[in-house]
Design a protein around this nucleic acid. Structure first.
Lengths: 222, 222
DNA sequence: CTATTTCTGGAGTGAATGCTCCGTAATGAT
DNA sequence: ATCATTACGGAGCATTCACTCCAGAAATAG
């Protein structure tokens, strides 16, 4: 199997340099795999999408699985804007609200694709440990990001919690529900997906409302 | 394309009768498609799983897609025990609790498969309208079943609801979360899937607790 | 019984698959 | 300029794919 021979950044290498931008090619491959699915995408499809010859594709990625891994890594990186505010945002519940708004927005933009990680997790994770690990790490990242935002919200008094267990539990609930929304979206049920996100938002506001009720009812405890 | 020539029940037909049980064969095909996925399953795999020759397989199902449709129909039927109590049960929240317990139990039994409908929805629904419709109908069935149970619970006073919208919203939330759990399970994250179901159960109990609080706090309203 | 209909299973179809080989082009190092 | 090294692209590899054909077997109708 051939290896990716791309140079470490800044180090000039002998021989003919590659004539394409690996990032651009990876993005094109991601788009194709996302919409068509892994098995249904042929090398010919990737050749057309990237404009590369088969041999160049294999020189760069090693195998079809290699293309998938690169696409997953790229997807991970592209989701930084979505997840970083959850993980390290300065807001509490607002960070979570913005997250759900972003999810909602993405549903109206892309038609069919759903979430690349969700699609890949169900299609290829069961028979590829490396892919499974990546998909699981991403899912945990979403869950932990939501939990972090919930934790900040609790610290601000925006949530009424009985114990720390509640944060993890609610984060798990939201993460799972968001994944479920992506399944519906992938199946073409955009309206239902949107309505479900709205239901999630209402649940979050209900959690917030409990904290307000608690404050109003027991002001002496402040 | 050949058609399924199976006779209507009770009507004897001329010619050599088929020597296999269509139900048994469909069940075997379902099992294979469920664990391996649609694209990864070859006709050869189905031949080995069912014990039928390719031509008999095609005589019975017409095409590989036909096998998938039959398997989905079979899956639908097999889920009757799970969904009927939700839809037409005599309990309220208890029906929902039993549903979640069943989901939880199935996670510890099967390793890897997840939910056949979820897997199929993400893998083949985007490029096959018939499959997409079937997957969407199933998803709506789960949602409406949960909503029906929640409705009965509300009628019994087990839930405190502001409006009818709440029932649909909560049903959507639960349905999506259950689907998300299946994605995690398909990825091999059984422990996480179990923990998420537990979180869902706690959320349901919290909803129930609100109703109790409301009763205790405003007994004059009864 | 005979005639007819249907099913069975194995061999085999063309097409598509993932992947590789190799001659040539293009670059950097010397 | 020369050489070493790498990338490019098209032709082509063996294999696998979903699917079909056909000759024989097995059943029922009359």
């Amino acid at each position: 199997m051939q290896q990716d021979r791309s140079a470490p950044a800044g180090v000039s290498r002998r021989g003919r340099p590659r004539s394409f931008d690996l990032d651009v090619v990876t993005a094109a491959a991601l788009r194709t795999l996302w919409t068509k699915g892994y098995e249904t995408t042929s090398i010919e499809d990737l050749v057309q999408a990237t404009g590369l010859a088969p041999s160049s594709l294999y020189a760069a990625f090693g195998s079809k699985q290699g293309v998938l891994e690169a696409a997953l890594a790229r997807y991970d990186r592209d989701r930084e804007d979505l997840l970083a505010p959850l993980e390290r945002g300065s807001g509490g519940l607002d960070d979570l609200r913005r997250f759900l708004s972003s999810i909602r927005h993405s549903l109206t933009q892309s038609d069919g694709p759903g979430c690349f990680m969700v699609n890949t997790a169900t299609e290829v994770a069961p028979r590829d440990d490396r892919i499974a690990e990546r998909a699981n790490r991403y899912r945990e990242r979403v869950r932990d990001g939501i939990a972090a935002a919930l934790g900040r919200a609790a610290a601000r008094g925006e949530l009424a919690l009985q114990d720390a267990e509640d944060i993890t539990g609610r984060a798990r609930l939201l993460q799972a529900a968001v994944y479920g929304v992506q399944v519906a979206a992938r199946g073409g049920a955009t309206e239902e997906a949107l309505a479900t996100v709205d239901a999630l938002r209402r649940q979050v506001e209900q959690w917030a409302g409990e904290a307000v009720q608690l404050r109003d009812r027991q002001p002496e405890d402040r």
